[in-house]
Simulated scan of single mutants.
Amino acid sequence: MPLGGVIFIVIFIALFGAFLLWVATKTGGKPIYHPIKYEPYECGIPALDKKDTKVSVKYYLTAILFILFDIEIIFMYPWSVSFREFIAAGNGGLVFFAMVEFIAIFVFGLFWLVKARALEWD
């Protein structure tokens, strides 16, 4: 019986999506062509070619590193909340050393970043 429910939902979503597309084509009106609309960014302002607007790769590297270490904290929070339950179940030592290994990998990565000077802006 659960497979029938999944098939029903898939068919319903497909029909409802087709219906919404049909309504959008009937009520949307005729598109207006304007050459500026097809310029980059579609903001209505004519594009100016500037050669000095390149963004340094270090901004992207810093953003990626922030996301990486932020995800580390996201993984540590549920572990710390449920750690007492693991101790009560007798798995406290195993779970603790798994988290120590996880943190050690990230600390090694942080030391590697400092050694490779990936965090320096000069």
Rank of each mutant, 00 (worst) to 15 (best):
D70I: 00
Y59Q: 10
F69T: 02
R84T: 10
L68H: 04
I74S: 07
S82I: 08
Y77A: 13
Y60I: 07
I74F: 10
D70S: 15
L61V: 12
G92P: 01
S82C: 08
R84M: 12
S82M: 12
L61F: 09
L65V: 03
A63T: 04
F75A: 11
V81R: 15
T62R: 02
I67F: 12
V81L: 15
L65D: 00
E72G: 10
A88Y: 05
Y59E: 10
T62A: 15
W79R: 01
Y59S: 08
G92T: 02
L68M: 10
F83L: 12
E72Y: 04
F86S: 07
F75W: 09
L94N: 09
N91H: 14
T62S: 13
W79N: 05
L94S: 11
L65C: 05
V81A: 11
I71R: 07
S80I: 06
I74P: 00
F83Q: 04
Y59D: 06
F86I: 00
A89G: 06
Y59W: 13
A89M: 08
Y59G: 02
G92Q: 02
A89E: 14
L61H: 10
D70C: 08
I87S: 07
N91F: 15
G90C: 03
M76W: 04
N91I: 00
L94G: 11
I71C: 09
L61N: 11
I71W: 13
M76C: 09
E85M: 09
I64Y: 00
A89W: 05
F75Y: 12
F83D: 01
V81E: 13
G90M: 02
F83Y: 14
Y59L: 11
F75I: 08
R84Y: 12
G92R: 00
M76D: 04
A63W: 05
S80Q: 09
L61A: 10
A88T: 09
F69S: 03
Y77Q: 09
A63E: 04
F66T: 10
A89N: 11
A89P: 00
V81M: 13
M76K: 02
Y59F: 15
S82K: 12
E85Q: 15
L65P: 03
F66E: 04
I74T: 11
L61P: 00
D70W: 09
E72C: 12
T62E: 07
Y60W: 14
F66K: 07
M76S: 10
G92F: 03
F83T: 01
F66A: 14
R84E: 15
L65W: 01
A88K: 12
F66M: 13
M76P: 04
A88N: 14
G92I: 03
E72M: 13
I64H: 03
L65F: 05
I73W: 06
T62M: 11
I64E: 01
L94C: 00
F86D: 08
I71N: 07
F86P: 03
A89C: 00
I71M: 14
Y59P: 02
F69H: 01
F69V: 01
L68Y: 09
E85R: 14
Y59N: 13
S80R: 07
F83I: 08
I64N: 02
L68W: 05
G93D: 09
P78V: 02
F75E: 07
I74G: 05
S80D: 07
I71E: 09
S82F: 15
Y77G: 02
E72W: 02
G93L: 08
A63P: 01
T62I: 09
F86M: 11
